[in-house]
Design a protein around this nucleic acid. Structure first.
Lengths: 213, 213
DNA sequence: TAGATTGTTAATCGATTAACAATC
DNA sequence: TAGATTGTTAATCGATTAACAATC
């Protein structure tokens, strides 16, 4: 409602605030000022205060911010106060690594089902789940209250799968396929384009070396 | 040299241009105007021309851009004209998925060695490579002309490993550990914080649902 | 040549930083 | 109360978009 037009730049910084505050909390730090946090996180104190005040006044003049309260509030803003039900589409190695070993469940992201098109994988056990055929997708999503689909399939299949997911009203797609998905406004897409990330690293390496030949 | 202060915003868009141009090239498209590309990519033609002109004039008035030439030039800017030698540190599931199945070699990123601290993994074969103990890290990096280290280890170990890598002058770190690394200026870091990405998706899902309650 | 489209300058928009009054 | 630090407004900076002269 009042957080209607908060820029993605701000949103992108929230998980990092959340992480630092979680660590402070674990270290039993009770309060912190924007100035102290700015030193820790290497951003300006001004930006920290501006960012937080997008969501309301979390601090207190003369005192700073209560670490635990701020941690919880940012967590709530990010939706960490409730669980999300996920399905994995694509039971390959990357998919299995995400479902099995990343422990996203700790942050409330719980894998409920796994799908694949490969006949030789369907029926097998992955992370305590039996890999299902794609024909069961729609039924499973509806019956199990699935929020988010994780796409770890090759780019060729991704657009069609995204369309099927959109049609049954999935809320979000975490897209690891190397392609841009066109979905309606009610479906949120978050892309993880690993090779783009690697190319950016490559550029920055080159640039540094050219500047310091 | 002349590309000294190009913003990271521009750099972040280059891999996406590269991908679209590669697809156009594969479809035997010879030339494209900024206007046509803007429709395809859903960005403004103005931004496209500004972005390209950071690196020099790749187009021709009245004609547009030659697809193959532009693809090659952007590839060159991104360092796709030469190979990079990588090592993987952390032979867990995510690491194995990256080294084994992602086929980054196609883009010139070649895995040369794998390291782990776990005694039960050392000596085993992963992706045609024998997993080495961390004691061999420095020697291997020097002897094999390693550019980039891929960190797929828990956050607890990451800062120390990053320091060791910095000391022997690694060029880049592709960091999947959920922690910010403090390294000198000559080491480029590209972070892939998967849980941050997932939290951002969670936020955007929440926001949409609140706005359209 | 006329038409098309770039390269580039100028205008606008948005995000970051600085400053300071409000207030705990 | 005095000191500290927020919340918030104003100033600055940077990035995006618009406009158009240059030129193929």
């Amino acid at each position: 409602m009042d957080n209607k037009d908060i820029s993605q730049a701000v949103i992108s910084r929230l998980p990092r605030y959340h992480r630092y505050l979680g660590e402070l909390k674990d270290n039993n730090v009770e309060r912190i000022s924007s100035q102290e946090l700015s030193v820790l996180m290497k951003v300006t104190a001004s930006q920290i205060r501006q960012d937080f005040n997008n969501f309301g006044g979390f601090g207190q003049q003369g005192y700073g911010y209560n670490v635990e309260y701020l941690y919880d509030e940012i967590g709530r803003i990010l939706g960490m106060d409730h669980t999300h039900n996920l399905i994995l589409i694509g039971a390959g190695n990357l998919g299995q690594a995400l479902a099995n070993y990343m422990n996203f469940a700790r942050r409330g992201f719980v894998f409920k089902g796994i799908f694949d098109i490969d006949e030789s994988v369907i029926g097998k056990n992955v992370s305590d789940m039996v890999v299902m055929p794609m024909s069961e997708l729609e039924d499973f999503v509806r019956k199990n209250d699935i929020d988010i689909a994780v796409l770890t399939i090759p780019k060729t299949g991704a657009p069609e799968v995204a369309e099927r997911l959109s049609r049954i009203g999935i809320s979000g797609i975490w897209n690891f396929a190397h392609v841009d998905l066109n979905v309606p406004d009610n479906v949120q897409v978050e892309n993880v384009h690993l090779s783009d990330s690697l190319m950016k690293l490559s550029y920055n390496i080159n640039r540094y070396q050219e500047e310091n030949n």
